[in-house]
Design a protein around this nucleic acid. Structure first.
Lengths: 133, 133
DNA sequence: TTTCATTTTTGTAATGATTACATTTTTGAT
DNA sequence: ATCAAAAATGTAATCATTACAAAAATGAAA
C-alpha cells in the first residue's frame, strides 16, 4: 500500500514515517477525524508520536492541497483525505458527519473573483435520526 | 430605529438593552465582525458590557435563527445579521470577507436528509488583490 | 408600588484547542 | 562517516470560548 506515499510525493511533501502514517489513517478511515481522533488512534502503534506532529503534518497536508480541513463542526476541525469535489452534511441530532454529492452550482455570478476553493456545508437531520420519530 | 427590536420579537427573543445594541451593531455594520470586534465597538458607549454577554447574546441570536455564524475564518467565528440566502468569499491574500450571491444549487441529490441550513464558502483572490499584480 | 420569582447580565475562573519555540532526532547528499 | 537541512518532539504559552456563581434587571401578581 503505497497510496499515501504516492499522494505525498505528488504534492511535493517528503514522505516521512509520521506523514505516511497520518495520511494512511485518513485514507483508511473516512470518518472525518479530529486531531485527537488521529493522535489517539495512532498512539498505540506509534508511542513516540507527538500531538504537535499531528498538527504540523495536517497543516502541511492542508496547505499543499492533499487533505481538506472542514469547519462544519464548531468544536473541532475535521480532516478529510477525499479531496474530490463533494459536500458535507452534519446531523444536528447525532452529530454525525456525512459526505454528500457536491450540488451542481452556477458560478457565473462572481465576476472579478478568482475562486480556488469551495466548501458546501449542510446542517439538518440525517436519515437515521429521521426514523427515530 | 426599531428594526433590531422587531427582529428580536419576531424570533421570540426578549429585547434587552444588550441584545438590541448587539443586533443593532450587526445590522449597521455588515462587516461580519467577530466577538471581539463587537465588544470593542460597543464598549465605549456601554462600559458595563461584558464580553461574556456578547457571547451569550450571539449564541442566543444564532440558535434562534436571527443571525448567522460563519466559520469561513479559521481564527474566529464571524457573525452576519443578513440571514437571507447568500454565499461568502474570503480572500486568501487580504483576508477580507465578502458577501456573494448564493449560487443556484441542485438539491435533488440528498434523499433522506432533511436540510435546515446551507453554507457556501469560497476561498481565493478578491478583485482588489487581483489588480495588485 | 411593593413583592418575588424568573430572566439576564456580569466577572472570574476553567477549559481546551492550537501554536510558539527550543531541543532532539532523522534524513539525505557529499 | 560527516554535516547541514528538514522534521519531530515536548513543554509552555496563547487565546477563544464556556462554566459557574453572584448581582442586577425585569415583569407579572397582589
Amino acid at each position: 500500500m503505497t497510496e499515501a506515499i504516492d499522494i505525498l510525493n505528488s504534492h511535493n511533501i517528503r514522505p516521512s514515517v509520521q506523514r505516511i502514517a497520518i495520511l494512511k489513517y485518513l485514507l483508511e478511515h473516512r470518518i472525518h477525524p479530529t486531531v485527537d481522533d488521529i493522535y489517539l488512534a495512532l498512539n498505540p502503534t506509534m508511542p513516540t508520536l507527538s500531538k504537535t506532529t499531528v498538527y504540523n503534518v495536517l497543516r502541511n497536508l492542508v496547505e499543499n492541497g492533499a487533505v481538506l480541513a472542514l469547519t462544519i463542526d464548531e468544536k473541532n476541525v475535521r480532516y478529510d483525505a477525499d479531496i474530490s469535489l463533494h459536500a458535507h452534511f452534519r446531523c444536528q441530532s447525532c452529530g454525525e458527519l456525512y459526505d454528500l454529492k457536491q450540488p451542481s452550482m452556477s458560478d457565473e455570478n462572481i465576476p472579478g473573483f478568482e475562486i480556488e476553493n469551495v466548501h458546501v456545508y449542510y446542517w439538518g437531520k440525517c436519515p437515521k435520526c429521521m426514523n427515530k420519530k
